Simulated scan of single mutants.
Amino acid sequence: MTDAAASSAPSQPVLHLDTVTRVHGEGETEVQALKAVTFAAHAGELVAVMGPSGSGKSTLLTLAGGLDAPTSGTVSVEGVDLAGLGQKGRARMRRTSIGYVFQDFNLIPALTAVENVALPLELDGVGGRVARERATAALAEVGIADLADRFPDNMSGGQQQRVAIARAVVGERRLILADEPTGALDTETGEEILRLLRARCDAGAAGVLVTHEARHAAWADRVVFLRDGVIVDETGTDGVEALVVDSGATR
């Protein structure tokens, strides 16, 4: 391959789902949450996933994060098939390479903000002092370093979600997965959360944002539409710009 051809060749995606199917239940209760879905997200790219309730959006995200396994097909992160890692290997991948932002925050009430953010680092063997330093830096990145010693119950919803994002990006996370991260937030705080996700992707991470609102999807580089477990459409840069205009969102 020539140097020119090599430079123009597409890079390996950070996240790749290859003909992934996920079936829940058996017989009459069987439900196909995803049907032979192929999907990818590259470094520096934020991809929004939209679709009606029950379309498979959250299933796609749980499979991407190694929280569930496909019935068939492969899910790879940075070229590594998650199925081949085993349960412990997938847990380590989530601690080191995959950040997951949940709609309901999933913070540990008994831990302070900095302790919540430092926890995945400490579980991965990082020393307490270094883990706290990195956690404090992540809190500063999301603008709440001054809340490091505050407990979740003493924070607003927006502040808790910022802690959750700091936990998702601390360390060398290459893939950020966000499941309706603004669902419980007011409009202004929600826009700030999306701005933070966008900035992290601009810094080199790959991001996948599940949302049902066009104004939130307008922050993405691409929008993928799911219906009944199948990708039915995809909008590139031009389509995203149209979402910006239609929803009045700003990037």
Score class of each variant (00 low, 15 high):
198 R>G: 03
150 R>M: 07
37 V>D: 04
213 E>V: 00
163 V>M: 13
74 T>A: 08
66 G>Y: 07
126 V>P: 08
13 P>Y: 06
95 R>D: 01
81 D>N: 14
105 F>W: 05
157 G>A: 08
148 A>L: 10
110 A>R: 12
194 L>Q: 11
167 R>S: 06
193 I>W: 01
74 T>D: 07
245 V>F: 10
24 H>K: 07
205 A>C: 08
57 K>H: 01
113 A>H: 02
247 S>K: 07
5 A>V: 11
137 A>H: 12
247 S>N: 07
39 F>S: 09
111 L>P: 00
212 H>Y: 13
73 G>L: 03
23 V>M: 10
189 T>S: 14
244 V>N: 11
81 D>K: 04
148 A>F: 13
40 A>E: 15
118 A>M: 03
158 G>R: 06
140 A>L: 12
175 L>N: 03
167 R>M: 03
1 M>F: 09
180 E>A: 01
101 V>C: 00
14 V>S: 06
245 V>D: 15
234 E>K: 08
201 C>I: 03
31 V>F: 14
124 D>L: 04
153 D>V: 11
41 A>Q: 08
17 L>F: 02
101 V>L: 02
85 L>V: 07
147 L>I: 01
49 V>P: 03
221 D>S: 14
101 V>Y: 00
181 P>C: 03
147 L>A: 14
19 T>A: 15
35 K>W: 09
202 D>W: 08
16 H>E: 15
96 T>C: 01
120 P>D: 03
97 S>P: 00
150 R>F: 09
127 G>I: 03
112 T>N: 02
12 Q>E: 15
61 L>R: 08
18 D>L: 11
156 S>T: 12
61 L>E: 06
223 V>R: 11
78 E>V: 06
115 E>N: 06
146 D>M: 13
41 A>C: 11
218 A>V: 04
158 G>M: 07
148 A>C: 11
98 I>K: 01
28 E>L: 14
82 L>F: 04
222 R>F: 09
101 V>H: 00
112 T>L: 00
27 G>F: 13
246 D>C: 05
8 S>H: 12
23 V>S: 12
217 A>T: 12
44 G>C: 11
246 D>N: 14
39 F>E: 09
184 A>W: 02
201 C>Y: 04
86 G>V: 05
94 R>P: 05
207 G>Q: 05
102 F>W: 08
183 G>H: 04
119 L>I: 02
80 V>D: 01
62 T>Y: 15
95 R>I: 00
142 V>A: 11
111 L>I: 00
